[in-house]
Amino acid sequence: MRIAVVTGSGTYALPGLADASRTTVETAHGAVPVTLGAVDGSEIVHLARHRDGHELVSHQVTHRANVAALQQLQVDAVLAVTVCGACDPSATLGSLLVFDDLHFLSNRLPDGSLCTLHDTPAAPGRGHWVFEGPFSEPLRRALLAAAADADLAAADGGVYGHVDGPRFNTRAEIRSLVAAGVSAVSQTAGPETVLCGEAGIPYALLGFQTDYANGVGDEATPVSTLLELIARSTASFSAVLAGAIPRVAADPPAAVGTSLTWD
């Protein structure tokens, strides 16, 4: 089984990856650098969304190329992580949550085009991704169990709110997301969730709350605190992933939902 780990801000290398080697995957949507290796005998593909040194800010992340690369590498499951802004004033900064729903109304990629792999008329596989929940339940359970084993607090469920970057959101924008039930926000995982779903790759998302979104707390989270927690997130992510990967390898999940196609 081959498992992909997708990381974001603050995590550009995957600690504990054995026999690591860098390669570049050429896709119809662009070239994608990845690192291949192993964790506890499982084949791992590590993809850093922002690339080394945070080369790409959020609106430059190459989502379609990334998912196409994972398809070409025949990845069986994706464990993704993101640092995020809490929309719940009772949330503890530095805590984790394993999302179970998605708020991504625009359904658009950073260039403004629709977020889909189905961009060519009459292409094989064209259709609609049909699902109840967008995230893989077996992968979510693996993340939650691994967090518990690592003595890390992780909320079971929450709505991931995808917001466009690179700027942060206004108070009015966050109020509208809170009203829609969003638990935490970040700027990259919406397209990733949808494209993996269309590709038939099981996907789950683990969040680490680094700040309170604008207007959520009585006072704004200092940027210094945000940066400190981003730096701390890598250790938490690594601990959970180390425990989740063997669980996923032992019980491979099925794809989320199905595709309504016209082939």
Rank of each mutant, 00 (worst) to 15 (best):
A4H: 02
G8L: 01
T11G: 06
T11S: 14
L17Q: 09
A18D: 11
S21V: 14
E26T: 15
H29A: 12
V34E: 05
L36Y: 02
L36V: 09
G41M: 06
I44N: 13
I44Y: 12
A48Y: 05
R49W: 04
H50G: 07
G53K: 11
G53I: 13
H54I: 04
E55P: 00
T62W: 07
L70G: 07
Q74G: 04
G85K: 03
D88E: 07
S95E: 09
L96Q: 05
L96N: 04
F99Q: 00
L102Q: 10
L105D: 11
R108K: 12
L114F: 15
D119V: 12
T120K: 07
P134A: 12
A145S: 14
A145Q: 12
D156A: 15
V159K: 01
V159E: 14
G165F: 08
P166D: 08
T170M: 06
A172N: 07
V178K: 00
S183Y: 11
A184F: 12
Q187R: 13
Q187T: 15
A199W: 05
P202D: 00
Y203H: 13
F208K: 01
T221S: 14
S224M: 10
T225H: 10
T225G: 09
T225K: 06
L229F: 07
L229N: 14
A231G: 01
F237N: 07
F237Y: 11
V240N: 10
V240S: 10
G243P: 04
I245V: 13
V248E: 00
A249N: 10
P252Y: 08
W262A: 10
